[in-house]
Amino acid sequence: MTISPRNPDPLHETLARLVEGALDEAARSELARQIADDPETQQRYIQFMATQAMLEREMRRNQSVKWVASHGLR
């Protein structure tokens, strides 16, 4: 399996904008409507957000490990 940022899934790209706080009000409303009306979009939203939440936690853990490594533990 490879991972490439080229040609991402459009729903995932919209959700990525939401996570980065870059979705305007009209787009947010449209997204919320789709999530409420379409069970598949709802499932994909849930999985995407859970993935981003996990990414946030993992990356913060990594940053903490790097900080400890760079400052040393006496």
Partner: peptide, 9 residues
């Protein structure tokens, strides 16, 4: 955005 989307994919 694309990195986040690619990871989700």
């Amino acid at each position: 955005y694309r990195i986040r989307a690619a990871l989700a994919d």
